[in-house]
Every structure is written in C-alpha cells, then in structure tokens.
Write a protein that binds this DNA or RNA. Structure first.
Ligand SMILES: [Mn+2]
Ligand SMILES: [Mn+2]
Ligand SMILES: [Zn+2]
Ligand SMILES: [Zn+2]
Lengths: 139, 139
DNA sequence: TACTTAAATAAGAATTATTCTCCGTTAAGA
DNA sequence: TCTTAACGGAGAATAATTCTTATTTAAGTA
C-alpha cells in the first residue's frame, strides 16, 4: 500500500500523520494473517529499526480506537490485529495459531435477518463475529 | 453443586480427585458469569485460603484440556472461563466486561444446516461460537 | 490397613505481554 | 518560521501467566 493512501486513512480519522503510524498501519495490512504486536514489531524493524515497542502498542491502541483496525481475540494470552474492516468471520485452527478470514455476505444477511426477527431483549446489537473452530486439512 | 457430583465429573475424565480441583471446578460453576482466574482465586480463598495461585492456573488448564470447562476469549489481556459445555453464544457488552450467555437451539440448527450445505474447502468444523457485540440497556 | 509411587500442590522466582512515566521531538496550524 | 499540543523513545513498572523445585497426597496394591 502506498504512502498516499496510508496518509489519507489517518487524515480521514483526524489523526496526526507520523512515520511510525504509517509503518504500523502498513504492517497490519501487509501481515495479513492477523499479526500480533510482536509480528508487527519484527516487520517494521526492517525499515524502521528504532521504533520503540511501547510506541507500537500505543499506536495499535489508537488505530483501534479510531476504527482503522480491529482486535481479534484468541484463547492465547496475546492480542492479534486485523486490517480488514468489512464484516467477516474467522476460521480458528485447533492445531496451530492460524486464523483465516471467512467472508460470506450470504451468512451476514442470514444472521442479520435472523436477529431482526428474534430481538434480544435489553441488548442492542452492534456487530457479529462468528468464531468457526476446527482444523485445516493442511495442518 | 455437591461434592458427589464434582467428584463424579473429575472421575469421568479419569482425573485424580483433589480438594483444589473440586474447589476450582465448583467456583467456575458458581461464578456463572465467565470468571477470570482472579475471580476464581478470590472465591475459593473463602473456603481454601491456602491454594496457590499457580495451582489455580494449572488446574484451570487441566480442566480445559479434559473438556470440563471452556475458555472464553475477550479483547482484554486475560482469559475467562465457562462451565457451560453445551453449545451457546455470547453477548459482549461494549460498555463493561459483562459477557452474557445466549442459548438458542434454533440458531444452532440454522448454522449447522447452513454450513452443511456450504462446505468450507480444506477445513473441518468442530464448533461455532457467535460473538454478539453490543450494549445492554442497563449499562 | 499400610506401602508405594506417580501425579499434584505450595511457594515463590521467572517470563511474557502490555502499560506507564518522563522527557525530548515533531507535525501541523498560525 | 514559530508555537505548542500531541507524539515517540527509553526503559522501568505492572499484570497475567508459567515455570521450577521440593513437599505432599491420591489412589492403586499388597
Ligand atoms: Mn480477519
Ligand atoms: Mn458462556
Ligand atoms: Zn493449523
Ligand atoms: Zn455492560
């Protein structure tokens, strides 16, 4: 992804544009399989050897708050991040740490319809994420 | 839950029966809103003041491995646990740390049917967990 | 019931991921 | 160019979890 676009994404959210933010946002996009902070640090070190670890965590938090990336939960004790904002679900591998995207507009529609009819009392739904747990044949 | 039943559950899995394991398993059942290790430690301290923290983590891991409890993922940096084994989904509150169970056999059936028709190539599904994010009116 | 032993626990150190603090630097508007 | 609030670097601090080692115990066996 080119710098123009990265700058634009930050600017759209009214965020100050800094090299660190651009590098970290780009890393989340490039490392497309839900990278950890660790993965991101390793990646950006290649081009930005002196970015502080604390900065990476801070920037990731800020990017999440501003809706430029999302957190992906795992049953391990570290966080993972996702640069894909459009609604999608996740295939979690039971054998390894692989989390694959599962895009399915038909499923989204099905869920949306289902919960429109069936409204949950006392709760206002913002979004769904279906965790699909299982194993990949390749694993 | 009485001791007989707790013992039985451990025995069914071929696990050695210890007071610590019984207390921790009972705590997960009693603290029914997806307790953290911290919550569990606090709870069992009332009756078992000298259980080591390391033991709690170890036992929780063992209970998960043996399929007596499940982990519940959050976007915070600690794990939560669930004593309810039957398929169900979760309402995550965006305002606080509340995670409420959402049981819905109709939805389970819908998902099962949907993924039977639509099979995901190269992936064998074991279970679904739908994360329903939003806000409770009371929050 | 007493004996045996592998497995489990207590205590506390160590590790890991993440957050915080403080001070120097910089982006962006005037 | 100047100003300044926001940002980032360095490293200490914290919080959750894991590891290590010695001691204890559950549960099978004689
Ligand atoms: Mn994704
Ligand atoms: Mn639950
Ligand atoms: Zn795998
Ligand atoms: Zn709430």
């Amino acid at each position: 992804m080119d710098n123009k676009l990265l700058k634009q994404k930050l600017a759209e959210k009214g965020m100050k544009i800094t090299p660190q933010r651009m590098a970290i946002l780009e890393a989340v996009y490039e490392l497309n399989n839900h990278p950890t902070a660790e993965n991101i640090i390793e990646f950006i070190r290649k081009t930005h050897p002196n970015v502080a670890i604390g900065t990476v965590y801070k920037v990731l938090e800020t990017l999440v708050e501003n809706g430029l990336i999302k957190k992906v939960t795992t049953d391990r004790n570290f966080m993972r991040y996702d640069g894909i904002l459009e609604s999608h679900h996740h295939l979690y591998c039971s054998n390894c740490d692989l989390i694959e995207d599962y895009h399915d507009a038909e499923l989204d529609e099905l869920l949306k319809k289902y919960f429109e009819s069936k409204n949950i009392s006392g709760f206002k739904i913002e979004e769904f994420v279906l965790q699909i747990k299982g194993t990949f044949n390749k694993c």
